[in-house]
């Protein structure tokens, strides 16, 4: 062993991941190219801009909004996005929706990309259910008492997406301009969509 030892010892998890991939390739179960392509897609092509387009379209097209709320998967398919099991919940002046996965990290990845780190953290998963209002305040979202907070627990069968309220002062904006205002956090429900002036400020 002496002499050919690796220069910088690597953490166990790195070696373990490499060992697993090496074995799976050897057994013909995966190819490096397939994994490369998938990682690249999730790093670059899939992200919240897809969900934001759906939200913007729903704001502009009442018929699309109805279809989106009735069957999220079908409404996503209209834009060429595969999101089976997608359920869209709508924020109103009286209702605010918040999405969590209490058991792990179920998330509508094809329309939002991969979940942020905090979404997967035990405190978020626990506190979204127990004290959503306090949690929302920590995200900078303070809701009036009369607004009801509804918490949706995702699973592999149902993935939730929040349709945020369209902010005032956005009349006349195009679908593209509206989509640019919609953040990932707003579609998880930890934030509201800000009007363009607030964004610029």
């Amino acid at each position: 062993m002496a002499g050919n030892h690796k220069v910088e010892p690597e953490p166990w998890i790195v070696l373990r991941t490499r060992a697993l991939e090496s074995l799976l390739i050897e057994k013909g179960l995966i190819t490096t190219e397939a994994v490369d392509k998938l990682v690249d897609t999730y790093e670059h092509d899939i992200g919240p801009m897809i969900g934001a387009r759906m939200v913007a379209r729903a704001w502009l097209d009442p018929a699309y909004r109805v279809r989106l709320l009735a069957d999220g998967g079908a409404a996503a398919a209209e834009l060429g996005v595969s999101a089976a099991n997608l359920v869209v919940v709508e924020n109103t002046p009286r209702t605010h929706n918040l999405v969590v996965c209490t058991l792990c990290s179920c998330y509508p990845a094809t329309v939002l990309g991969l979940p942020p780190t905090w979404y997967k953290s035990p405190p978020y998963r626990a506190r979204a259910v127990i004290e959503p209002r306090t949690l929302l305040r920590e995200f900078g979202t303070t809701l009036p008492d009369e607004v009801e907070v509804r918490v949706w627990d995702s699973s592999s069968d149902v993935r939730y997406l929040v349709l945020p309220e369209r902010p005032a002062g956005t009349e006349g904006l195009s679908e593209e301009e509206l989509a640019a205002l919609v953040t990932r956090d707003a579609m998880i429900g930890v934030a509201n969509v800000q009007a363009p002036a607030a964004v610029a400020g």
Partner: peptide, 28 residues
């Protein structure tokens, strides 16, 4: 690379490989 959601998707290369292996196997 800049992330469209303002956050690194994977913090280290091995995380991406672990993710990619599971999803690839599932897709197959």
């Amino acid at each position: 690379a800049p992330r469209k959601n303002g956050e690194l998707v994977f913090h280290a290369a091995w995380e991406g490989r672990a993710f990619g292996m599971a999803v690839t196997l599932h897709e197959q």
